[in-house]
Each structure stands twice: as structure tokens, then as C-alpha cells.
């Protein structure tokens, strides 16, 4: 690849460049692929082999793909030791957690609180991830926005979106 060891973002500042350094991301990928491959083989083992007239049954494809993943895991591990690591762009963790948290809250709340409140929370969390941390402003904006979306899609176009207390209050559904 085009990346050189000098650009490895994960190396502590000041450390001497060393061609022997292991690419940690590459190793994570290798382990992940190997695990996925193992899941595929494990699952395939439970499937009764009913290939019928085709001779290829439902368990054979997972095995083939599992084999491919295992080879790719080995290749990734080989590269992690051999090839210079690619620089991963430096990332801030908090914004990621804001968005993941927003999606998680929406997932937990959409049934009980309804589309607008859950969507408003996601809206506010996403805005917070991009630096608008004043939740007392963004949350009401988000809820009103989601309520407007609900009005158009659920009321006018009859898409079935989960209704909660707010929707019942405003639209009487």
C-alpha cells in the first residue's frame, strides 16, 4: 500500500520508526474475521444436510464462505506483521458515543415514547455530536421536527409509525 510507517497514527509520539511494528488494527480485523468464520462453521454444523438432488445443501455455502473468511483472516494477520500499517484518521470518541447513544435511546424508547420523542432525542444527540450541546434547545427542536415528520408520513401518507403519548395528545390517534 501507499502508507508508510512514518504516518502510523497509533504510534506514541517520539517512538523511533520500526519496520517490525505490528499493525494493531490489522490484528483486530484478523481476529474478527476468524471469529466470524468460526461462527459460520459452528452454525453450519447444526444444519441437517439436505442437499437433495442438487448435492449442495444449505450447510455447504456457509462452510465455503467460512473458509474464505478464514483465509482472509490469515492474510490480514500476515499483512499486520509484514506490511507497513496504514494511517487511520485520528478520531474523537465523544461524538461517536453521542450518536451511538442517540440511536440506542431511540431503540429503547420508540415503542413506549412514540416516534416523535424518540426521534427528537436522536436528533438532539446527533446535533450534540456535531457540537450543539445545548440540549434544552436542540431537544424541543428535534421533537417538533419529528412531530412534523410524523404528521406528514403517518397522518397524511399513512405510513405506520409508532405513536406515543405526544402523538396521541396532538393527533388523537
Amino acid at each position: 500500500m501507499t502508507g508508510t510507517p512514518d504516518h502510523d497514527a497509533r504510534r506514541p509520539p517520539g517512538a523511533a520508526p520500526s519496520p517490525r511494528r505490528v499493525d494493531r488494527v490489522g490484528l483486530i480485523v484478523a481476529v474478527g474475521l476468524a471469529a466470524l468464520s468460526a461462527v459460520l462453521f459452528w452454525d453450519a454444523a447444526r444444519i441437517p444436510s439436505t442437499g437433495g438432488y442438487a448435492g449442495i445443501g444449505p450447510a455447504d455455502t456457509p462452510r465455503l464462505i467460512g473458509l474464505g473468511l478464514a483465509l482472509l483472516a490469515a492474510w490480514a494477520a500476515w499483512d499486520a506483521f509484514k506490511a507497513p500499517a496504514e494511517p487511520a484518521p485520528a478520531q474523537d470518541l465523544p461524538p461517536i458515543l453521542w450518536i451511538v447513544g442517540g440511536l440506542g435511546l431511540q431503540l429503547l424508547l420508540f415503542r413506549s415514547a412514540g416516534f416523535s420523542i424518540a426521534g427528537g432525542i436522536l436528533f438532539a444527540c446527533t446535533a450534540a455530536a456535531f457540537g450543539r450541546r445545548k440540549l434544552w434547545i436542540t431537544l424541543p427542536i428535534g421533537i417538533v421536527f419529528a412531530l412534523a415528520v410524523f404528521a406528514v408520513f403517518a397522518m397524511l401518507l399513512e405510513l405506520s409509525l409508532p405513536a406515543g403519548p405526544l402523538e396521541r395528545l396532538v393527533f388523537g390517534v
Binding site: M155, L156, G172
Partner: peptide, 21 residues
């Protein structure tokens, strides 16, 4: 977009606002 849609189909709203049996 919301406004365009709402304006164009506003008439349909009244028909769906009753309680569900």
C-alpha cells in the same frame, strides 16, 4: 418539502382523524 406535501394533500388529513374502531 414538508410544506409542499402538506399543502398538496392537506385535504386528505380530515378523513383519517377519527378514532380507530
Amino acid at each position: 418539502k414538508t410544506i409542499v406535501l402538506a399543502a398538496l394533500a392537506a385535504g386528505a388529513l380530515a378523513a383519517h382523524a377519527q378514532a380507530a374502531d
